[in-house]
Write a protein that binds this DNA or RNA. Structure first.
Lengths: 142, 142
DNA sequence: TACATTTACATCGTACACGATATAATTGTA
DNA sequence: TACAATTATATCGTGTACGATGTAAATGTA
C-alpha cells in the first residue's frame, strides 16, 4: 500500500534518534533531579552558575544555546524557588546579573552525586560515551 | 570563588550535548518543514504514517516513544490541518485508527526532498553520521 | 456471569522551546 | 549633540513534553 521510500523511513533519520535519546535521557534525570526540586533545564542553569557565578542572562543564554524568551521565565521561576537573584547591572542597565543564593550554592553539594548516578543507568561503555560526546559536539559546533 | 568540581562541569555531561544537538537539529528542520506547514513532531508522525498507514494511537506512540498525553492533542491538530482522520476502531472501541487523508498522502512527494536538504546542512561526514546513529540507538534501546 | 484488572485514550496543569515583536538602554555616526 | 542602529531583556502566542488522573471498553477470573 505505502510506496517504498527509503529516505523517509523513520529509522534512517538522524534527527529522530537524537530527539528520542535526548528525551529519554532527560527522563532518566527526572527522578534524580526531583530530589533536588529541579527540572532538567533548571539543572543546566545551575551547572552553568556553579561553574561561574554572577553571569548575565546573555552569558547563560550563550552557554546553553537558548534565548531570553526561554530563559527569562525559567530564571524567574528559579528566583521564586530561592535559588538565585536577578538584579539589574549598574554598568549596563539593560543587562541583568544572575547570582546564586546561599541555597543555590549549597545545592551543589547534593548535586555532586547526580552525574555518577546517571552514568550507571546508561547503556554505553565509557569509550562509547566519549565517542558520542565527541560526535555531538562536532554536530553542535558545525 | 566557585569550587573545582569536574564532575559537574557542563561540558563533561552527556545529557547537555544530546539536548542541544537535538534542539539545534530540529531548528535546522524548521524552515524546510515550514514549507510543508508541519512542525517537527508532526513530521515524525507523518514519517510513521507514510511508512504504514492506518495505525492506532498506541502504535504511533510506541514507535515515537510518546504517550497519549502528547499524541492526542498533536493528532487533533493534524486532523484540523486535514492531514489525517481519527476514527474509533470497530473491533475495539477504546482504540482510534489514524488514517492519512489524500492531502496527507500527497505531502509525501514534497517531503522526499527533506532528508537530503538536511544532510547538506550537517557538519558530519557520512561515516560519522552512521556512527552517531548507531550510538544513539544503542543509548535508546539500552 | 459478576467484578476486579488491564488497556486505550483523553484531560489537566506545569514547564519548557521558540518565532515574532516590544521596550529601554547603549553605542555608533553624521 | 541629535538620532539611527544595535543590544539586552521581556512579553506573547502556539506547540510540544510529560506526570497525574479520569473514563470507558475489553479482558481475566472466581
Amino acid at each position: 500500500m505505502s510506496e517504498e521510500s527509503e529516505v523517509l523511513k523513520l529509522e534512517r533519520q538522524l534527527c529522530f534518534p537524537l530527539y528520542t535519546a535526548s528525551r529519554l535521557t532527560t527522563q532518566c534525570y527526572q527522578p534524580i533531579l526531583q530530589e533536588l526540586n529541579l527540572t532538567y533545564p533548571q539543572y543546566l542553569v545551575m551547572l552553568v552558575l556553579w561553574e561561574k557565578n554572577n553571569l548575565s542572562l546573555s552569558d547563560i543564554a550563550q552557554k546553553l544555546f537558548l534565548q531570553s524568551n526561554t530563559l527569562t521565565p525559567l530564571l524567574k521561576r528559579m528566583e521564586e524557588l530561592g535559588l538565585l537573584t536577578r538584579t539589574r547591572s549598574k554598568q549596563d542597565e539593560r543587562s541583568i546579573c544572575i547570582s546564586l543564593t546561599e541555597t543555590g550554592e549549597k545545592l551543589k553539594i547534593q548535586a555532586e552525586q547526580v552525574p555518577s548516578r546517571l552514568t550507571q543507568q546508561i547503556s554505553l561503555t565509557r569509550d562509547e560515551a566519549i565517542q558520542l560526546h565527541t560526535l555531538l559536539y562536532k554536530l553542535i559546533q558545525g
